[in-house]
Amino acid sequence: MTSLRRTPPASSTGNMSHKNYDSDTLSERGGNDYVRQKRRRQSDEDIIMLSNKIDQYFSELKQQNAELRDSLQFMSDKYDTTLNMISKMEEKRLEDKKQIAKLEERLEFMIASIEIRNIPSSSKENKKKETKEDICELVQGFAKTLSVSLNESDIKDVYRVTTNKETIKPIIIELNRPRKPVYVSEVLTSRTQKIYHMARQFVKDYNYSYCWTSRGTIYIRKTEGEQAIRIESEEDLNKLKLKQ
């Protein structure tokens, strides 16, 4: 007969140990999952924070670029405006230069030339054609009447000019250039003459560049291009002194 061997029952202590091991393993796995989830959440939060910072940085950078672009555009517009102003000023300077040349030429002619009107021709009395010598004698006689010394050597040329309105032709006397400069100024009242003298002294003392009269009114100017200042009384000069 075959003998049967009875398998002893499993020890209750071994089962308990196995159950405890499974429980610890599950707890450890749960703890690891929690840590991983926590780290994952922390990593996500860090990524979001970093992304926000990057967005903020680029937003500020865009704003700075926009401001820089606006500044560059402003400077470009100002540069174009300045070039335009310089171009216009240069054109104005050339026009003024031409005008000054014309005025100097005209002034030179005015200083060296005299026009006399309503002196009848000597040819009517002598019944002969009037010559240059006749006109010269008329001019010298006219100067003598005015107590003005006018020698024949002072006269460069003398002639009559034709006009549409006058029956007696005016006489033009071209004089030789005087050795001394000729100054032409307005006739001012004694009060205006006194203020004009004070204004010229003020211009010298306070480094102003210009002082002149126009139609009996006194003007001064600090530098070229500035607005002219009208001087009507000594009080106007005193006010300007207080501002210096």
Rank of each mutant, 00 (worst) to 15 (best):
F202S: 00
E133Y: 02
L138Y: 05
S71H: 06
L188G: 01
H18I: 08
D80V: 05
S17A: 11
S121G: 10
N20K: 13
Y196T: 03
L72R: 07
A143R: 02
I111A: 02
C211N: 05
T145Y: 05
L175P: 04
R215S: 14
M16Q: 14
G14K: 15
E104S: 02
T2D: 10
I111F: 00
D157R: 13
K19E: 11
S71G: 05
S147M: 08
R5M: 12
F58K: 13
K194C: 07
N65K: 10
Q201M: 10
Q37A: 13
K194R: 12
I171F: 05
V184T: 04
T25W: 10
P181V: 01
P181C: 00
Q201T: 04
D205F: 02
F109S: 08
I111V: 05
G30T: 14
N151K: 13
V187T: 15
P8N: 06
Y219Q: 04
L240R: 00
K53E: 15
K124M: 10
D22P: 06
R39T: 14
T25P: 05
E105H: 15
L150C: 13
S123R: 05
L50D: 14
T13H: 12
M85W: 12
S149Y: 13
Y21N: 11
R69N: 07
E105V: 04
I172L: 13
G31V: 05
V148W: 11
Q193G: 08
T13Q: 12
G30A: 10
V203G: 01
T81M: 11
N151C: 12
S209P: 00
D77S: 09
K127F: 07
Y159L: 11
R177V: 06
K241I: 02
E152H: 12
D154H: 07
L150W: 02
R221M: 13
S12K: 15
S153M: 08
E166W: 03
T162A: 15
V158P: 00
I218T: 03
E108S: 10
V148C: 10
T25R: 15
S27V: 06
T189D: 09
Y208F: 08
S153N: 09
D236F: 00
D77F: 04
K127P: 01
E91K: 14
V187W: 13
K204P: 01
V182R: 01
Y183M: 06
K127E: 09
K165T: 10
S43W: 09
L188Y: 05
E226S: 15
E226D: 15
N207G: 05
S23V: 13
V182P: 00
R179K: 10
M110V: 09
K241D: 00
T213N: 08
K102D: 07
D46G: 04
R41D: 09
I220A: 01
Q99G: 02
Y159Q: 14
L103V: 12
S185F: 14
K239E: 08
K239I: 04
N126G: 12
P170C: 02
V187G: 07
Y183A: 04
M89G: 09
E224M: 14
S121F: 07
N176K: 12
S123A: 10
Y219N: 01
D44W: 03
L72S: 08
S214M: 05
E166D: 07
V35G: 09
R41P: 01
S59P: 06
Y183D: 03
G225T: 03
M49E: 11
T145E: 09
E232F: 03
H18M: 10
I48Y: 08
A199S: 04
S17F: 09
E45Q: 11
D70Y: 00
Q73P: 02
D157N: 15
N176T: 08
L138R: 11
K127N: 13
